[in-house]
């Protein structure tokens, strides 16, 4: 990522987090995603892409492996174009936390910042070019006394495939 683009991305993420610091409106999203810089990938190789998310203060979301079947896990779905494949997704471990509404029960949650890593592969025959990877992050948020319906936010970044 070039320096100006990185600065702009950082400013955008910072300003977006200010929205999370505000009193949440009933329709707002409780999670935002930081911009991902342009990813470069050689044909025939693989690379890891880190996607950074920030959860609004006072909120938490279930981890990818919540402790009960009835809880809704955080799930990232990525749709790669034909020239790419999503080989793996690595979620962080959830943090075991107890909340005022159930002080004796620990839940596996994400709060604050968390990252998900995607391993992308480009076949050797992949044509050089820039390809969008799109998807969505589905999560279900709660605060200290209430829970909010499941939501999804869009996830998108650009991958540039270069020939060997």
């Amino acid at each position: 990522m070039t320096k100006p683009a990185g600065t702009v991305a950082a400013v955008v993420f910072f300003l977006a987090t200010l929205g999370l610091a505000q009193a949440p409106s009933e329709k707002q999203s409780y999670v935002i995603m930081a911009p991902v810089g342009n990813v470069q990938l050689r044909a025939g190789a693989s690379t890891s892409v880190e996607m950074d998310f920030r959860i609004g203060s006072e909120f938490h979301i279930n981890s990818h492996h919540p402790k009960a079947d009835y809880l809704i896990p955080t799930v990232l779905k990525l749709n790669a174009p034909e020239q790419l494949t999503v080989a793996d997704l690595k979620y962080p471990e959830g943090e075991e936390m107890a909340f005022a509404f159930a002080p004796n029960d620990k839940l596996s949650v994400y709060s604050g910042d968390f990252s998900i890593n995607a391993v992308l592969k480009a076949p050797a025959k992949a044509a050089a070019g820039s390809y969008p990877v799109k998807g969505e992050l589905r999560f279900q948020a709660c605060d200290h006394s209430a829970c909010y319906p499941p939501r999804s936010i869009p996830v998108q970044f650009q991958v540039t495939v270069v020939k060997k």
Binding site: Y70, F99, A102, D105, L107, C147
Partner: peptide, 10 residues
């Protein structure tokens, strides 16, 4: 309420 709502269970 909803099944996914932990405070609801309280």
């Amino acid at each position: 309420w909803a099944t996914w709502c932990s405070p609801c269970q309280i």
